[in-house]
Design a protein around this nucleic acid. Structure first.
Lengths: 173, 173
DNA sequence: GTGCGTGCAAAGACTTTGCACGTAC
DNA sequence: GTACGTGCAAAGTCTTTGCACGCAC
């Protein structure tokens, strides 16, 4: 497999199209999902989705709040948490786990691949896709009689830029 | 709880030997690690390690506390948390991530493989090992010029016993 | 019009920390 | 003897919830 790395560049989910192109379809997707659940499409929810789209990378609830404040969108923390949950339910974003401190999320709509490499020094994230992993997963699940519904593959590594650039004095006696 | 997972299959930490056999070497490992860091090997720390060994499965800090209380080991919650961190540093146990609610840990000393399958219905965990995954990981890291230090592979699936056996009224339509 | 949504602050779940006393080395 | 450890409770961090008012459908 020569080049399985879908996004050659660090961290960003979308590459070819600009952020704005997403807004219309994603709004529709979200609106439809809400409608299907008898929930309402409010300005606040639209703003949260909009802000997430603008972030174009992995984010935490807190970062989203901060970013929205910076952009003069006045939405409460509670609403952000509530909306994030709805967006996960709608399949528009997904939760990823780096640590148990706080939840991280990212866009899932554009079918971004699940696999990623995380730099243990800098926190930099590189997304990529390994199609065989799905086959592997299905095979293992089948061998045990389980029904696969998803998987997660993360590589922990040190990125080339962190070794050189970063002094990173953890403990110097 | 009956038999939380794994034992029957490849990948459990202990298979042939009984729990007690571990106590001596693990104590030594821990003691040496502490000594190397100029820390002390106290009865409390020994008890925490002992209790973890007896659990023989994935555990949470809270479960460990409960189990130790049950066995009349009087160790404070703070000490459990502090000792868990030391054991992770020593490489004796490792943290695994199911969700961000709380941290889960398991024995890492016997070089248990990192890969696992989690039942999204019951929480049952099945450990297994895929050697190719390490090669895959190393190859991908190398392709991008990163230095791999670890990985995590989790399959989310529905275990056969959960569909039939378990009522599990999460939502009963 | 009504029921779902929102903001606010308070509560909740898990983990860490400050302090005074205790103990392994 | 001393520096590290311990228990306790209080503080911290991230997330959820109760309530009164407001708005989308």
């Amino acid at each position: 497999m020569a080049d399985h790395s879908a996004q050659s560049n660090p961290g960003t989910v979308s590459s070819a199209r600009s952020g704005d192109d997403y807004i219309v379809p994603l709004c529709s997707v979200f609106r439809q999902h809400l409608h299907g659940e008898n929930l309402k499409f409010t300005p606040e929810r639209a703003q949260v989705l909009d802000a997430i789209i603008q972030m174009e990378r992995v984010f935490e609830a807190d970062e989203l709040l901060f970013e929205m404040r910076r952009r003069k969108m006045r939405v409460s923390k509670a609403t952000i948490y509530r909306t994030i949950r709805l967006l996960v339910d709608a399949g528009i974003i997904e939760q990823i786990l780096y640590d148990q401190k706080q939840a991280h999320y990212r866009m899932a709509y554009g079918q971004a691949p699940h696999d990623q490499m995380v730099c243990v020094e800098t926190g930099r994230v590189l997304d990529f896709s390994i199609p065989e992993l799905v086959e592997l997963r299905d095979r293992i699940a089948a061998e045990h009689g389980w029904s696969p519904v998803g998987h997660r593959f993360q590589i922990f590594a040190i990125s080339p830029d962190s070794e050189s650039a970063e002094p990173d004095a953890e403990d110097e006696q």
